[in-house]
């Protein structure tokens, strides 16, 4: 009895996840490198997005970008444009496209694709220097929900 119950639960779980989230290789790109549709069913949380952008092990956007709206974050990089006012320059769909894979809008960009799993040249599993045993070992840098959180935060950066 218990076994049947468990099985049903797991299947329902998979169904829900598949509905709620668009996988990196299923993203619907517009010609211009923007993504209209949210990657998840849950609206992005800008507070989470701010943390993700400032955290080394997550988005680490401040490694390259300065954001004056985050005065407490030390050692912001100066490689990429300052992000204040970015919501006036781009639509939400464009910002989603830039975060998922900036090379669609800026072809030679230095900015890594945050929701991209390939193709790459000699990809390793995170910073281990080890090749993946299976293609699934290459995980996107941010999850679908984290991308939505970051986009929600970027949308607050208008001047």
């Amino acid at each position: 009895m218990q076994r049947i119950f468990l099985l049903t639960f797991v299947v329902a779980g998979i169904g829900a996840a598949a509905m709620a989230e668009i996988a990196p290789d299923q993203v619907l790109w517009a010609e211009d490198g923007s993504i209209q549709e949210s990657l998840t069913d849950t609206p992005g949380n800008p507070d989470e997005g701010e943390v993700i952008m400032a955290t080394n092990a997550l988005g680490n956007c401040v490694a390259c970008h300065a954001v004056e709206a985050m005065p407490d974050v030390p050692f912001q990089g100066n490689i990429a444009p300052q992000l204040d006012g970015v919501a006036d320059r781009w639509t939400e769909a464009e910002l989603r496209g830039i975060v998922v894979d900036a090379k669609r809008i800026f072809p030679e960009s230095f900015m890594p694709g945050m929701y991209k799993v390939g193709p790459f040249i000699r990809p390793g599993v995170a910073y281990t220097a080890k090749p993946p045993e299976m293609p699934e070992d290459i995980k996107p840098i941010l999850s679908a929900q984290q991308v939505e959180d970051v986009v929600a935060y970027l949308m607050t950066l208008s001047e």
Partner: peptide, 9 residues
Amino acid sequence: CVRDTRGVP
């Protein structure tokens, strides 16, 4: 430096 690109050196 290659490892820091999440690459296999």
